[in-house]
Write a protein that binds this DNA or RNA. Structure first.
Lengths: 366, 366
DNA sequence: TTGAAAGCGCTAACAT
DNA sequence: ATGTTAGCGCTTTCAA
């Protein structure tokens, strides 16, 4: 490996001169010196060792990214956007990790990042306990959290970027109501993250506003969590069964996200219910996969590229020493882009009419 | 930040003693010394700086992973498996990058990894030109390449792990043939990677073996490449149109991968063709999303966890100085796990029978 | 305008 | 059994 020493020797200058050109301090430099150094760099194919530099400066162009699961298409979509911006605009690379929403994995990831000198992290977590994150901040990290609004009145050291989950769910629900649905379901995996409970609030608010809160219910999948995985099919089926067997069966369901909506539609099909004839489904995310389903999924699109940009900028922006404490203002909430109308929503079936589905084989009743 | 010096001072020993316990050289050490050091480490919450260590040892517990696109669910699935093994078995973290299959992005990623001291890389690329990779190997990296078999007879410095693409496509095609199909299509995005051409060979071989090679054709999407993206819907539609309008319309199609199969089924629907009544589709990958489609996709499952393990082991296994040159043996080909029969394959429709589809609005003819 | 030198935090001979 | 010390490759005062 060629070092700065080699370059200095080759150019007949000192290492500090080479270092100066590496860092753009060439204003006071004689043109031919600069030229000699640059030539030597080219000749020797010299690449400065970022590690050595970082040991000195305490800076490394690496951005940590923590996601619940890389295998979940929505997170990998967000990750791709984050990567593109971090790379193109700031020259940062991504160190990524899946946490499966466990705080010990999160904590150990932070430990490692710290040890590697990474000082900028984006966390998609929604874990209720932010203590290990705040600890990292105290140790000098800049962290921005996704999908988890700042706790009100509690000034936090970490910045928050989040879609307006309340509004997204409200929009989805309103759409169903506009189509005439009065018996509504909100389908979610179990485990109450802040983003999920905000979606539920939006769902309920829309129902209430339409005066049909009595017909609006929340269904969750039971104790499955790693739904970025193949289990999504099982989760969808379990949920479909619950919905199919509910006393006054819902005719419209809002899914907590697109992936669950896809799983749910598959499950519904297995129980013998047709979408949208028997039950309408709307998703939240606007992931490109939702355009591939049959029927194509109607969904609320989230502004992923914009949120990704906001996160990267906040994570990489140099903090002016003491600005950190002024908290409160450090939250950005992004309204959903729009509702994409496709094929999974129709008016509710006539009561007892021709659209009545065959009775599914129930195994479970909520 | 607490350093090894602080620990040494706190424990009343020298830094080398601390270093020794950090590196497990505690056999010759007096028990109480060890205890004091360990206590000090705990007290001060000391985490050794991996950067400083690496500057000394030239080792950093980071694994580089290059994928065409993180947003492609198949790659993010593979990435998740790789991450899990690298982390759990070797304590390595992942530095990930999307290359969009361009060699300058690949090259710049290698540059950066090198500068960061990363010496182990897994590349999913299939670019025909491996020169920039071999260059990285010469500079001391261990790289393993996925989905790109070693060029025969040409000893390579890099290890190759790949599914048996020929066999996977052959299996898929054979399945269609077994159902009675004689007019077959292979649907792929354009851009000839080695894995794609091997799949095509497998497709053709199966057709030939059944004596129906005259009815077997390859369709490609035209000049679209970044199909990890939303464009998959357009690609699927373009391909569906080609297939629908082909002179003797194929009744069975093998898709180059599951994602394309999903896009194709969506496209087919738009052209008015029904799967599997009018045309049967089989995918390659066995991705969990294929279980969610309607109809559920019949697909050839690839042994992703096994391949991921093989890649990580090869990438992180210490190379014995000169073992590198003995090439040839450094290739592992994984046969497909099995064919997962689901709903997207049926016998071909009767000629001119009731299954005949409405004429789609053609805009393009292959 | 350029060079000498002191570290950044850690490891690993080599001493003791 | 433990301590001393010389770097790893770079940045950055401070001198010249």
């Amino acid at each position: 490996m060629t070092t700065i020493q080699d370059v200095a020797r080759h150019a007949g200058v000192s290492v500090s001169t080479v270092s100066n050109v590496l860092n753009g301090r060439t204003d006071q430099m004689r043109a031919d010196t600069l030229a000699r150094v640059e030539h030597a760099i080219k000749m020797l194919q010299f690449r400065p060792n970022k590690l050595a530099r970082q040991l000195k400066t305490g800076q490394t162009p690496l951005l940590g990214l923590l996601v619940p699961s890389m295998a979940n298409p929505m997170y990998s979509y967000i990750a791709r956007e984050i990567e593109a911006i971090a790379q193109e605009r700031f020259g940062y690379r991504l160190v990524i990790g899946s946490t499966h929403r466990t705080s010990d994995r999160e904590a150990s990831f932070f430990e490692d990042l710290l040890a590697h000198g990474v000082r900028h992290v984006i966390v998609i977590s929604s874990l209720s306990d932010e203590r290990h994150i705040e600890l990292a901040v105290e140790r000098g990290m800049t962290v921005v959290s996704y999908d988890r609004p700042a706790t009100l009145g509690q000034p936090s050291l970490i910045e928050h970027v989040t879609p307006d989950n309340f509004e997204a769910a409200r929009l989805a629900t309103e759409h169903l109501i506009r189509y005439g649905h009065t018996r509504l379901a909100f389908a979610t995996v179990s485990g109450m993250t802040m983003s999920r409970s905000n979606k539920i609030r939006g769902f309920l608010a829309a129902a209430e506003h339409a005066g049909i809160q009595a017909g609006a219910h929340v269904f969750d999948s039971g104790p499955l969590e790693d739904y970025g995985d193949s289990v999504i099919a099982e989760v969808g089926y379990a949920l479909a069964l619950q919905i199919a067997n509910a006393p006054a069966r819902p005719t419209g369901v809002v899914a907590v996200n697109d992936l669950l909506a896809l799983g749910l539609m598959a499950g519904l099909r297995e129980t013998g219910l047709q979408v949208p004839r028997d039950v309408s489904v709307v998703g939240i995310d606007g992931h490109f996969l939702s355009a591939l389903s049959n029927p194509m999924l109607t969904t609320v699109e989230l502004p992923v590229p914009e949120m990704a940009r906001a996160m990267v900028e906040r994570a990489l922006r140099r903090r002016d020493a003491n600005t950190e404490v002024e908290a409160t203002g450090c939250e950005a909430i992004f309204p959903p882009t729009r509702l994409i109308e496709r094929e999974s929503v129709a008016p509710p079936p006539q009561e007892g009419g021709p659209g009545a589905p065959q009775q599914p084989s129930a195994t479970r009743n909520p």
